[in-house]
């Protein structure tokens, strides 16, 4: 049991950090520009594929640097020549633009790299078990992923709180109009933030690609959950997104570890489980099956009772 707890915690934190890498960019984009970027997970996928291709041509370490830069440039380009045009038509138009973009990116990825998962491997340098506990090994690469994401979190925090551009971004988060009035080039800041956000997603892609599977549907799977993280954490709040990521990572991982159904709970209270009716399935469902539903339940509940999210200060 102890091993299950330890490994579930590790896996949960890792998944949470991965979510955070994606959500950190999205939360900045969403809170500053109001853009519900449905293509954000697609940039994560692009990162994974670029990482794969570059590590084939060169090596993983170069890919880790170059792929996010490339994806960041693409992201900045999308903002400059796509979103900025659409911006004047309102948020729904921007959202639909990213909707279409997600389609296009997925199909292009399928055309170039095929529909099957690609053979993206862990670099040999990190291809060994980091430690062994109760006979289960934990791969070094996962420790590396954890390290990278924590490092990025720290860097991001430093940049946002200590640097000048960070301060402008923070100001733009809460008072976008005021920042523009002060004479800052808000479109340029937007482009920078969008590019960097995409770059961050791409870093997540490059390091998640070998550990998970690099395939065209990888964007789909993560898409909606990112919005949960961003909104749950609260608009404009990086710490909020951080907490929400970890929370959702841990909840989803631990839910899997628990084999317990509502019916079991009733049985332990000495009540018979209802077997009739359309809802009878509800009693058979285990916590593990409910796991994927929990984040959405959390989203609805927090928005109903605290529309600003966990640590946010504004609603939209």
């Amino acid at each position: 049991m102890l091993e299950l707890v330890i490994f579930s915690t590790l896996n949960g934190v890792l998944y949470g950090m991965l979510l955070f890498l994606l959500a950190s960019g999205l939360t900045l984009i969403f809170s500053m520009m109001g853009v519900l970027n449905f293509a954000h997970a697609s940039f994560y996928m692009l990162g994974a594929y670029f990482g794969f291709q570059l590590s084939q041509w060169l090596n993983f370490w170069t890919a880790l640097i170059v792929a996010p830069v490339l994806v960041g440039l693409i992201g900045a380009g999308v903002e400059r020549w796509g979103l900025r045009t659409v911006h004047k038509w309102g948020h729904v138009a921007e959202l639909l633009f990213t909707f279409g973009l997600a389609f296009v990116i997925e199909e292009l990825v399928q055309m170039v790299w095929g529909k099957l998962p690609v053979d993206y491997r862990v670099p040999p340098l990190l291809d060994f078990p980091a430690f062994e506990l109760f006979g289960t090994t934990y791969p070094a690469f996962r420790m590396f992923m954890l390290l990278i994401s924590v490092a990025i979190f720290l860097v991001l925090l430093m940049v946002l709180t200590r640097s000048r551009i960070g301060l402008i971004i923070q100001a733009a988060l809460s008072h976008p109009n005021m920042v523009a009035m002060l004479g800052h080039n808000v479109p340029k800041v937007f482009m920078l933030v969008f590019g960097c956000g995409c770059g961050l997603a791409a870093i997540a892609g490059v390091i998640a690609g070998p550990a998970l599977v690099t395939q065209p549907s990888m964007a789909h799977v993560l898409g909606p959950i990112l919005f949960v993280v961003v909104v749950f954490g609260g608009l404009g709040s990086l710490p909020g997104a951080f907490i929400a990521s970890l929370l959702i990572g841990l909840i989803q991982t631990f839910a899997i570890a628990i084999n317990y159904s509502l019916g079991d709970a009733l049985a332990s209270l000495g009540m018979a489980r209802p077997l009739q009716g359309v809802l009878s399935d509800l009693w058979q469902v285990t916590v593990a099956q409910i796991g994927p539903v929990v984040p959405y339940l959390m989203l609805v509940l927090i928005l109903v009772f605290r529309p600003t999210g966990l640590m946010g200060t504004r609603e939209s």
Binding site: M1, F7, N11, G135, A211, V221, I256, A288, P292
Partner: peptide, 21 residues
Amino acid sequence: DELHPLAKITDFAPYVAKIKA
């Protein structure tokens, strides 16, 4: 006796930890 969502899991490590246990 495990059931997991169809084509939605990105990381099976938690399931594997359970099998191991």
